[in-house]
Write a protein that binds this DNA or RNA. Structure first.
Lengths: 171, 171
DNA sequence: ATGATTTATCTTGACGTCGAGATACTCTAG
DNA sequence: CTAGAGTATCTCGACGTCAAGATAAATCAT
């Protein structure tokens, strides 16, 4: 039983503690799922930091990015936007208000539905989101540096398996 | 070019849109990292639901679980708790207040440091967190059902690689 | 046509979190 | 022994989110 330093992470500590305290439980699922949760948390922080250099908040990027990838003319209804970003309608009203105040989007009346509104990216908004996206990908590539392309593909496939049930359930 | 239904997820849609709009960017990192973020989001929802049947909020579980796995006498300082749960001190004060009001923890003066406080799990708190943890693991096992043990181990190892840099940087 | 239902968006109040700062105590260098 | 630095916790105000409900317009059945 040497003390050779193994490459452990916080989740290993976590799991070890649970095994000690609750030897009756099978805590194997944490090996994958706790790491997913913690990694996501760290990614959020890293993203916030990357966007900060562009004067953007994460939530701002989320909305601008949805509009950007919709393609020209970069318009989506609030309803579509909240499906893309997984937030509630009240939140989206708020977000669009503040993005419009900053001049990154504008609200237009929907010509085909007088209840409706179209949110459109301004040129300034497009520039911001394009720069932020390029920067984000650079940072993310660095994070993945340790993994071979093949490993990345394997993980991506496995994660797709895990996400799909959730994607399906919301029709 | 048949229309054979491929097994795609929302992230495939996302990536496809970005490739169309920004063919100049290498969006490969999203295959892994966007899936991690989205899966974490879904997991949060699933956890909230599982805890709801025990009358617990997710944030309550996080605190109780940290105390539980610390082992008897189930005591930690607010400082240790906020390192375990990755929240700020103001948040932890708030959480402990509310957990104490519900009778799931109590605040004790630290006998060795008069600035300090120890937060201790009550028997009721321990029962709650034990039941919730067992339930959570059952749900998580179901989520992972589609993956072989070997695949799970491979993913866990890869995720550990990705998380470690973050774990290290905070000393 | 007309009323009922559905859909799209906005409004409001409560909640949990954060970050900065306040307070009280401990530790360390001299 | 003491001044200053460090540490532990709590306070407070601002913020973003959510959930429920309000409003208005479109759609459907009769």
């Amino acid at each position: 039983m040497g003390t050779l330093e193994r490459m452990e992470d916080e989740v290993d500590r976590l799991i070890e503690a649970w095994r000690r305290e609750r030897p009756d439980l099978d805590v194997a699922p944490m090996e994958v799922l706790s790491r997913v949760s913690r990694l996501a948390r760290h990614l959020d922080r890293a993203r916030s930091q990357a966007f900060g250099t562009h004067g953007l908040e994460s939530w701002e990027f989320d909305v601008l990015a949805a509009l950007r990838r919709a393609g020209t003319p970069y318009q989506l209804s609030p309803g579509k936007l909240l499906k893309e970003t997984l937030v509630t309608s009240g939140t989206m009203t708020n977000r669009v208000d503040r993005l419009a105040a900053r001049g990154l989007v504008e609200r237009l009346p929907d010509p085909h539905d007088r209840r409706g509104v179209l949110v459109q990216l301004t040129p300034a908004g497009r520039d911001k989101v394009d720069a932020a996206m390029a920067d984000l990908l650079t940072h993310e590539r660095a994070l993945l540096g340790g993994l071979s392309d093949g490993d990345q593909q394997k993980i991506a496939r496995a994660l797709r398996e895990l996400v799909r049930p959730f994607d399906l359930e919301k029709h």
